[in-house]
Amino acid sequence: MKKKRLLIIFMLLFVLFIASFTWLLLQEERYQYGYTRNYQFDPLKLNNEDLEFVLINENDVESNKNLKDDYFFGKEEDFYLLVNKFYELVLLENASFSKLDSIEFSTLCDNVNSGFYSSYFTYSKIENVDGKKVRVHRYVFIDLQSKTLRIIEEYIEPVILIWNKINLSKIKYSASDVLELTDRNGGSDQRQTVNNNCYVRVGMFPDSAEFRGWSVSYIETYSEKNEQIVINEYDPFTGELLPSEKK
């Protein structure tokens, strides 16, 4: 009899959980803007103890861009180190305590072997803001050309705990690896067809309904439609080129 009661209680709790979770999923997400801030940094001091992130205004960001397109390129690891140091020095947090939702790196077609000049990260975590539990989303843009980092923060309700996550420690093939694979297997020939007038994006977006792994895109620079001349997807654990889903 006791076991039967426990089973009934367990089933009732399970039904209540399913009903509550379903109700949460059906709720419309509410977004609240937090802030946008821009910071200046010196890429050459990345590994120095005196690395600083200096708060600047929007006009300073534009004026700091090099009009001669003299790009500064960095390794993939440099961007991870930069965002981790920003979290530590400015946000006074450890980035590993937030969920990494997506990453993207950019470079130019005639510099695919030189590294990347910009990156984009999104992070999220659950916090209490003004007495309410919310999902805090942070969008971090790093641009080595202008030597700036931009962060945008927003708050989302309701809180749903089931998300995808990027675990960098488990990824066997990096953004640099899959870019090299793409360029070696046809990408180089394709970018030559537009005289290297294109740029490259390598990203991973687990929350996308179409997510399958790393996405590598070569995009023509002067195309009105931003035409993509190469689109490859790779398994981040095996490096396998995934078959195209185009019909």
Results as ranks from 00 to 15, higher is better:
residue 3 K to G: 08
residue 148 T to L: 05
residue 145 Q to V: 11
residue 106 S to W: 15
residue 62 E to R: 13
residue 204 M to G: 03
residue 132 K to E: 15
residue 134 V to I: 08
residue 230 V to G: 00
residue 238 T to W: 06
residue 244 S to T: 09
residue 187 G to T: 01
residue 203 G to I: 04
residue 91 L to W: 10
residue 7 L to Y: 08
residue 40 Q to A: 14
residue 165 K to I: 13
residue 216 V to D: 00
residue 133 K to H: 10
residue 75 K to L: 12
residue 207 D to A: 10
residue 98 S to W: 06
residue 184 R to E: 13
residue 219 I to K: 09
residue 202 V to F: 01
residue 167 N to T: 13
residue 51 L to T: 04
residue 58 E to K: 15
residue 218 Y to G: 05
residue 68 K to E: 12
residue 190 Q to A: 15
residue 174 S to H: 04
residue 163 W to D: 15
residue 119 S to W: 00
residue 202 V to L: 00
residue 4 K to Y: 11
residue 117 Y to Q: 00
residue 179 L to T: 03
residue 246 K to C: 05
residue 193 T to N: 14
residue 153 E to K: 07
residue 65 K to R: 14
residue 174 S to G: 07
residue 132 K to Y: 13
residue 153 E to V: 15
residue 202 V to G: 01
residue 179 L to E: 00
residue 191 R to E: 04
residue 169 S to V: 09
residue 179 L to N: 02
residue 135 R to W: 09
residue 106 S to V: 04
residue 174 S to R: 02
residue 9 I to P: 02
residue 227 E to M: 08
residue 38 N to T: 07
residue 199 Y to E: 02
residue 244 S to W: 03
residue 60 D to I: 06
residue 179 L to F: 01
residue 185 N to L: 10
residue 219 I to M: 03
residue 120 Y to R: 05
residue 217 S to N: 14
residue 127 E to T: 10
residue 178 V to L: 02
residue 98 S to I: 00
residue 243 P to H: 07
residue 241 L to N: 01
residue 106 S to F: 13
residue 197 N to L: 15
residue 43 P to W: 02
residue 45 K to H: 12
residue 178 V to H: 01
residue 235 D to L: 01
residue 152 I to P: 02
residue 32 Q to N: 11
residue 2 K to W: 05
residue 146 S to E: 03
residue 149 L to Y: 02
residue 150 R to T: 14
residue 11 M to Y: 06
residue 226 N to P: 06
residue 9 I to E: 10
residue 57 N to V: 06
residue 98 S to M: 05
residue 141 F to I: 09
residue 194 V to G: 01
residue 69 D to W: 12
residue 34 G to F: 03
residue 89 L to S: 08
residue 225 K to E: 12
residue 72 F to K: 11
residue 105 F to N: 00
residue 60 D to C: 10
residue 45 K to M: 07
residue 123 Y to T: 03
residue 226 N to I: 02
residue 24 L to R: 05
residue 198 C to E: 02
residue 239 G to F: 00
residue 43 P to K: 04
residue 28 E to W: 06
residue 125 K to M: 06
residue 90 V to H: 07
residue 132 K to T: 07
residue 14 F to S: 14
residue 210 E to W: 14
residue 84 N to E: 11
residue 113 N to V: 00
residue 63 S to A: 15
residue 155 Y to G: 05
residue 212 R to V: 11
residue 127 E to L: 14
residue 243 P to I: 08
residue 101 D to G: 08
residue 72 F to R: 10
residue 153 E to D: 06
residue 178 V to R: 00
residue 141 F to E: 09
residue 185 N to T: 01
residue 98 S to T: 07
residue 206 P to F: 00
residue 101 D to P: 04
residue 218 Y to F: 14
residue 39 Y to F: 12
residue 109 C to Y: 02
residue 15 V to K: 07
residue 67 L to I: 15
residue 208 S to E: 10
residue 91 L to S: 04
residue 43 P to C: 03
residue 106 S to K: 15
residue 53 F to W: 04
residue 167 N to V: 13
residue 180 E to S: 14
residue 168 L to W: 07
residue 102 S to N: 15
residue 93 E to S: 06
residue 19 A to R: 13
residue 54 V to G: 04
residue 20 S to I: 14
residue 63 S to M: 12
residue 106 S to M: 13
residue 116 F to A: 01
residue 28 E to L: 09
residue 216 V to H: 02
residue 139 Y to A: 09
residue 235 D to P: 02
residue 23 W to D: 09
residue 20 S to L: 15
residue 159 V to R: 11
residue 128 N to G: 06
residue 71 Y to R: 10
residue 170 K to W: 05
residue 190 Q to I: 08
residue 162 I to C: 07
residue 198 C to G: 04
